[in-house]
Computed example of a mutant assay.
Amino acid sequence: MSKALFCPICRKVVLATDEYFPFCSDRCRILDLGKWASGDYKISSPIQDPDDLEELARANAHRHPNSGDEE
């Protein structure tokens, strides 16, 4: 039995055995790629590691040593 999902672009039912899975067509695949390329989609998650947070803070302070001092 083949698994069915919805095309992420047009929401048509797509089977896992379909040629453009998980998309219903090449058109929807290209539209999705365009959204990634234009920045419409982003993968983001908060930084959980305290060491990484400290390293980012040091790097930002090094890049912008006078930030916050000027009015």
Rank of each mutant, 00 (worst) to 15 (best):
D49E: 08
K12I: 12
L33N: 10
Y41D: 11
D26M: 06
F21L: 11
N60C: 07
A59L: 02
E54K: 04
R11I: 07
A16N: 11
A4F: 13
Y41W: 03
S25M: 00
I9Y: 03
D69S: 03
F21S: 00
D49P: 14
D69P: 04
W36E: 01
A61E: 11
S2T: 08
E54G: 03
L53A: 12
S45K: 14
E70K: 10
D32S: 09
R29G: 02
Y20V: 00
D26N: 13
C7D: 03
I43W: 05
I30D: 00
R29Y: 06
N60P: 00
L15V: 07
I47S: 09
R11G: 06
A59T: 14
K35D: 01
I30M: 10
I47L: 14
I43E: 14
A61I: 00
D69V: 05
E19H: 04
E19I: 11
H64I: 08
P8L: 06
R27L: 04
S2V: 12
H64L: 15
H64W: 15
V13E: 14
G34I: 06
S38Y: 08
I9M: 05
Q48P: 15
A4I: 15
G68T: 08
D49N: 12
D32F: 09
D18A: 12
Y20M: 00
G39F: 09
F6K: 09
A37M: 14
G34Q: 00
D51N: 09
K42H: 13
P50F: 00
D52E: 12
D52W: 06
D52Y: 03
D26Y: 07
D52P: 12
G39D: 02
F6C: 04
R11Q: 11
I30G: 07
K3D: 07
P22L: 02
S25H: 01
I43C: 04
A16E: 15
W36V: 02
L53Q: 14
L5G: 04
N66L: 14
A37Q: 14
Y20S: 07
A61D: 03
E71V: 01
R29S: 01
E71A: 10
H62S: 13
H62F: 14
P8V: 00
A57F: 04
D40F: 02
D26L: 11
D40Q: 15
C24R: 05
L33R: 15
G34V: 07
W36I: 12
G39T: 04
L53T: 12
I47H: 09
G34T: 02
F21Y: 15
W36D: 01
L53M: 03
A57E: 12
F21I: 10
D40Y: 09
L5N: 01
A59H: 02
D26S: 11
D32T: 03
K35F: 08
R63G: 03
F6D: 05
D40V: 06
D32R: 05
I43K: 11
P46Q: 11
I30C: 07
A16F: 09
K3G: 05
R58A: 15
F21P: 06
A57L: 08
L5K: 05
F23Y: 07
K42E: 13
S2L: 10
P8C: 03
F23A: 07
A37L: 12
S44A: 08
P8S: 08
